Simulated assay, not measured.
Amino acid sequence: MSKTVFLTGATGFVGGATLRCLVARNYTVIAALRNGSQLLQNKFSTINVDSIDGATSWKNGLTGVDVVIHAAARVHVMNDTETDPLAAFRRVNVEGTVNLARQAASAGVRRFIFISSIKVNGESTDLGVTYSPEDTPAPADPYGISKMEAEERLRELAVETGMEVVIIRPVLVYGPGVKANFQSMMRWLDKGIPLPFGAIHNRRSLVALDNLVDLIVTCINHPAAANQTFLVSDGEDLSTTQLLRKIALALGRTARLVPIPAGVLRGVATLLGRKALSNRLCGSLQVDISKTRSLLGWTPPVSADDALKATAQYFQESKKQ
């Protein structure tokens, strides 16, 4: 019998892809939408909420639900204009999450899947060193702190109520429709702009959108997922130089990469006030997904090369519209 799944964040990058996968696999889906948001309704139901915080009422959507997938969040943003960013993140990501989870437990929901972030582990690793789910959390910004606090509260609620909690911490997610820095890299490469990243010898774990969604859906039914925390990636760590070359190949372009040492790039970026960006481009962040593989018998179904081809194809088609 197909389970009934309640999904938040259904208009977002990860939530939207999860919704499409759930519908394709014939789950009964109830998607929560912010008032004013719209989705073409086909084979799923929706409810509307004004906002997500500690006072949100979810009672109209949780009756008869087996599993909640909570993908909605106040996301990490550059140049946050909030006077107290941590309080803003806590309002949505901590209080909003715990409020939903508590109402879900009261409604008899069996399992709560929380889409967290690798930022709970930290911002970077030394080359060749990997994060694991058992590491002591070391979030370095308000977004990561709020995700860590939400995880802690959810684990407490699981003990208190008996509702199973599954926590998934993705690394950088890419795929068709990706925005932000990843989209910018594709735009630069597509235009043939020379980039100073031809000698970056870091390693970064990434996760294709299809791989992340496959793991999320796997966690709906897998008995071993109960009350576990999982890291997720493509299982193929790439340097920034390798990634740019693969993206260029997927775009049918030649990557014009100038071999400037990473130390020089970091110094220039620091002078320009772009230290955080240089850390992402030059630093390493690697995760160990052996627990995800062994406990769930899960393997990323899509290779990085195939996922990058799909991402590049979507990017090129969107330029024509």
Score class of each variant (00 low, 15 high):
83 T>F: 03
85 P>Q: 08
88 A>M: 06
90 R>T: 05
90 R>A: 05
91 R>C: 07
91 R>H: 04
94 V>C: 02
95 E>K: 09
98 V>Y: 01
98 V>F: 03
98 V>Q: 00
100 L>M: 09
101 A>Q: 10
102 R>I: 06
103 Q>V: 14
105 A>Q: 11
109 V>H: 08
113 I>F: 05
113 I>H: 00
114 F>R: 03
114 F>W: 12
117 S>T: 15
117 S>Y: 11
118 I>Y: 15
119 K>S: 13
120 V>H: 01
120 V>G: 06
121 N>F: 14
121 N>I: 13
121 N>D: 13
122 G>S: 10
122 G>L: 07
123 E>W: 15
123 E>Y: 14
124 S>A: 15
128 G>E: 14
130 T>A: 14
131 Y>E: 11
131 Y>I: 10
133 P>W: 09
134 E>Y: 13
135 D>K: 10
135 D>P: 07
137 P>C: 06
138 A>D: 13
139 P>H: 01
142 P>S: 05
143 Y>H: 06
147 K>N: 00
147 K>Q: 04
148 M>I: 04
148 M>S: 02
149 E>T: 05
149 E>K: 01
150 A>T: 02
150 A>Y: 01
152 E>Q: 08
153 R>K: 15
154 L>H: 00
155 R>W: 07
156 E>S: 12
156 E>V: 11
157 L>R: 05
157 L>E: 10
157 L>W: 08
157 L>N: 00
158 A>L: 04
159 V>M: 13
162 G>P: 12
162 G>H: 11
163 M>C: 04
163 M>V: 07
164 E>D: 09
165 V>I: 13
166 V>F: 02
167 I>F: 10
167 I>H: 03
169 R>P: 04
170 P>T: 05
171 V>T: 15
171 V>P: 02
173 V>A: 02
175 G>C: 05
175 G>T: 04
178 V>D: 08
178 V>F: 12
178 V>Y: 09
184 S>F: 13
184 S>V: 12
184 S>N: 14
184 S>L: 15
185 M>F: 09
185 M>G: 03
186 M>P: 02
190 D>E: 11
190 D>V: 05
191 K>H: 01
192 G>A: 07
196 P>E: 07
196 P>V: 05
197 F>W: 02
198 G>A: 00
198 G>D: 06
199 A>S: 11
200 I>P: 01
201 H>M: 07
